[in-house]
């Protein structure tokens, strides 16, 4: 057991941090959000630097790719890091340029970057189906939640090999957990910093025990989510470890959204304050794969071998 990052992992995250400080972050996110645009430039930089190849890289692997997804989430990278860094490599599929949509056959609804995406991967009961998307058929929908959303209609679906749906869903669970984790940590840090600076009734907001305990409980949830996610990636996204990581992370997400906004008060509800950049985008992650309830039921299916409800 070793809970400390290796030298390789440190170096990799340092390099990624440098790249993201130039090509992502709050300012860039705000600029792109105005146009509802996918960040092709960031994707291209990540590809050129080899970050899209981490999953199968002999010097790195799925855990390193997961750490990178977390970091991209934290820096509000306007790309689709989960399919690019985890799901497509896990399925042995090429990683195309531009956004890729992940979907599951049980649920329909608007998807992130649906208008720009040319490819959609849908998890069936056993196999995945890969399909093209046509921009003519995408129907953008208005949304205040940060990501450009659209309803899409897949065309010319190609069925992949048996068992691929399981692989896709398990890595998707790890990926959405990692992405959420990076975003949640930033929202949390921002809120903690706010409670130290903000004075109420002549004392720092963060000195009130009623708030301290809630922030402390959030930190426990976040740390649990962090290590469960890393462990799931290390274990190759087994059915149980990936479901447990997603269930715990999404439970943390629910709580974090409420608490960060409650504690930062009205200023946290403004566009001027950065908090919403993470908390609104997080809600799209919350909806994926059926959300918290579905992740929890998947824990039961994998742990105790019962059919999905």
């Amino acid at each position: 057991m070793d809970f400390e990052p290796s030298d390789t992992q440190r170096a990799l995250l340092d390099a990624l941090g440098t790249l993201l400080s130039r090509h992502a972050g709050t300012q860039r996110s705000r600029q792109l959000a105005v146009r509802g645009a996918y960040d092709h430039e960031l994707e291209s930089e990540l590809r050129a630097a080899g970050f899209l190849d981490l999953f199968g890289d002999s010097g790195a692997g799925p855990l390193e790719a997961t750490l990178a997804v977390e970091r991209i989430g934290a820096e509000l990278g306007a790309i689709t890091p989960v399919p690019h860094l985890l799901v497509l490599p896990a399925l042995g599929l090429p990683v195309p340029e531009g956004p890729v949509v992940l979907a599951d056959h049980e649920r329909s609804g608007p998807v992130r970057y649906g208008r720009e995406a040319r490819q959609i991967l849908t998890a069936g009961t056993d196999r995945c189906a890969a399909a093209e998307l046509s921009p003519d058929e995408a129907e953008p929908v208005p949304s205040a939640y940060g990501h450009p959303l659209a309803r899409v209609v897949p065309r010319r679906a190609e069925e992949l090999a048996p068992g691929t749906a399981g692989t896709m869903v398990r890595w998707w669970r790890v990926g959405v957990s990692a992405e959420a984790l990076g975003m949640m940590q930033r929202a949390f840090d921002l809120t903690v910093a706010y409670t130290k600076d903000r004075t109420v009734f002549g004392r720092a907001l963060g000195s009130l025990q009623a708030l301290q305990h809630r922030l402390a409980e959030l930190s426990v949830l976040l740390e649990g989510a962090r290590w469960l996610t890393y462990e799931a990636a290390f274990r190759g996204a087994t059915a149980e470890s990936s479901a447990v990581a997603a269930a715990h992370t999404m439970a943390a997400l629910h709580r974090l959204t409420r608490e960060t906004h409650q504690i930062t008060g009205a200023v946290g509800l403004t566009r001027e304050h950065d908090l919403h950049l993470w908390t609104l985008r997080l809600q799209a992650l919350r909806a994926e794969l059926g959300g918290l309830r579905a992740h929890r039921r998947a824990v039961v299916t994998s742990r105790w071998g019962v059919a999905a409800a």
Binding site: G224, W227, R296, R297, V299, V300
Partner: peptide, 22 residues
């Protein structure tokens, strides 16, 4: 097989696992 029961089990199992890893 009851969905509500499953959700409660999933919640409890995730908390046990989070405690273990911490």
């Amino acid at each position: 097989t009851d969905p509500g029961v499953q959700e409660q089990f999933g919640h409890a199992r995730a908390l046990c696992e989070a405690a273990r890893v911490l």
